[in-house]
């Protein structure tokens, strides 16, 4: 296969992914002169939850944002290497980042609904994608999938800012789901939420993985252990270890992973 140079055998990935949706090959990202991501090579399995853990500042978010080319929006960010999404390099010249983002949705660290009504928040993605079916039904469908419908069905035209933090985050998930993405990237989606709201989101992730691939960045190891099928440990811009979650948490190969899991730094 031309262009997909690095062999997985030489990388930190200790297992073979049967059904990868992302094949990341030697991905390096610079912010101005600083290299934030160093030669990341890994496969991400389809319809599974993959967690990225690591100490803060290790490049987790940058890595996640390079999977749907959100980094393009930050002046001074530059990427090298390839990210194959269903076999197509999304960093190829002919690829439009807008098209990429339509298929790969994202949920951010702090709930960020638009300053519009709940309905309009969910409908926005549909509208810009030229959706011409039953808008109301589709919005309801998305809100149901985000387990928010019952809470907001009577106040769809209320401002999204009036919802609680947890509800806002589920609204953001509904907003992302409405356009039926194949992948949902979640950047520490619970870090701004209380434990109850966090539990709801985690349940939701369990539900959703049957239909979409989820890549989640978290600084919370317990959360990664609870919800993910695979876990990657990142350190200083590198993926040091990538393994099925159970394996990584019980038998880490890399001494740094072990030290991190034991809470010796973080």
């Amino acid at each position: 296969m031309k262009g997909k140079g690095a062999s997985l055998a030489e990388t930190t990935q200790s297992f073979l992914v049967e059904n990868p949706i992302f094949e990341i090959r030697q991905l390096s990202v610079w912010y101005k002169a600083q290299q934030v991501l160093k030669d990341v090579t890994m496969d991400i399995p389809e319809k599974q939850v993959t967690a990225i853990i690591g100490p803060s500042g290790c490049g987790k978010s940058t890595f996640l944002r390079s999977l749907n080319r959100m980094n393009d929006l930050i002046p001074g960010m530059r990427a090298e290497g390839q990210v194959f999404f269903r076999g197509l390099n999304i960093y190829a010249r002919s690829v439009d980042p807008v098209e990429v983002r339509r298929r790969i949705g994202m949920v951010f660290q702090v709930p960020n609904p638009f300053p519009k009504s709940i309905f309009e928040n969910v409908a926005f993605g549909l509208r810009i994608n030229g959706f011409n079916g039953d808008l109301k039904a589709k919005v309801q469908w998305a809100l149901e999938r985000a387990a928010l419908w019952d809470e907001v069905k009577h106040c769809l035209h209320k401002s999204a800012f009036e919802l609680s933090g947890g509800q806002q985050q589920r609204l953001c998930i509904a907003r992302a789901l409405a356009v039926e993405p194949e992948v949902l990237l979640m950047d520490e989606p619970c870090s701004a939420l209380d434990p109850i709201a966090t539990a709801k989101i985690e349940d939701l992730i369990h539900e959703l993985k049957r239909e979409v691939t989820i890549v989640i960045v978290t600084h919370n190891m317990q959360q990664a252990a609870r919800i993910s099928d695979y876990t990657a440990f990142m350190f200083l811009g590198e993926v040091l270890e990538f393994a099925p979650t159970g394996l990584l948490f019980t038998k880490p190969k890399d001494p740094k992973t072990e030290a991190y899991l034991a809470g010796r730094f973080g």
């Binding site: 296969m1 997909k4 062999s7 997985l8 055998a9 073979l16 992914v17 049967e18 059904n19 990868p20 094949e23 194959f84 999404f85 269903r86 076999g87 197509l88 999304i90 002919s94 690829v95 439009d96 807008v98 098209e99 990429v100 298929r103």
Partner: peptide
């Protein structure tokens, strides 16, 4: 092992529609 075979022939295209690009 480079890449999984079932993606080798892909129908996926992420090109922008011409009208929108314009």
């Amino acid at each position: 092992m480079l890449v999984n075979s079932h993606h080798s022939i892909t129908s996926l295209e992420l090109r922008p529609p011409f009208g929108r690009l314009l």
